[in-house]
Design a protein around this nucleic acid. Structure first.
Lengths: 112, 112
DNA sequence: CTATATGCATAGAATGTCAATGTATATAGT
DNA sequence: ACTATATACATTGACATTCTATGCATATAG
């Protein structure tokens, strides 16, 4: 089977959306997205961690380490910020608009 | 005003869709897409021509030169091939599916 | 004489994503 | 004993895509 048909520049919206219902650690996000999408979107570490770090640098998320029982790897939790929430709102609108735009291109004029 | 909110990997589907209703030359495609999208998507030459050439290399389009009246620049017309039509069909399905997938991520479980 | 429009095109930079790899530990299977 | 898989972080380097800037050539408008 094939895997990611491509996130297509929507990584920010995907990650921030996932964090909207509570703080999560990286690995947890990938599992959650995989479950939600029936394994259609399997985030790779090479995409995930750079993207998460970028979000933090932009102030859309903040993070903190959480120790596990000894022997288990620590977890780095990410939490969405107020700016992040604003960005989600904007990106959702852009996405909706883009769906309409693509619809007009793909199916022609009569689309709204 | 801002311009392209990003074609985000949909250039192939955009161009092939535009060619579905008849052969067009490059410049014409940009004008047509701009009109259809109320200037939301303004294809740049640096994106357009490499993409058109790629489509041709992949056998999804074919092209031919058309001379204009003397003094006017010639036009290079692109025509979609049968393989191109098949690709449009596949890409449309992928796009629809991707809309659903993104919906589940953005708005949560209850989405179809 | 400058900008804008028509029409093609490329070079180089920036960006985004992925495959591959690395570090650790734990458990399950053969 | 060995191997695979799962958990958890992360980086490197390659590749693909898109954009900015530029170039050529002509014509018209301001």
């Amino acid at each position: 089977m094939f895997v990611n048909n491509g996130i297509k520049g929507n990584m920010t919206l995907i990650l921030l959306s996932s964090l909207m219902d509570g703080e999560k650690y990286g690995y947890e996000i990938t599992k959650e997205i995989a479950r939600l999408t029936n394994d259609e979107i399997l985030l790779k570490e090479g995409s995930l961690y750079p993207a998460l770090h970028k979000l933090e640098k932009e102030g859309l998320t903040e993070s903190f380490w959480q120790q596990q029982e000894p022997g288990k790897p620590g977890r780095k939790y990410y939490r969405i910020t107020d700016n992040g929430r604003k960005t989600v709102e904007e990106e959702r609108k852009k996405w909706s608009s883009f769906i309409g735009t693509m619809g007009r291109i793909i199916y022609g004029e009569q689309n709204s």
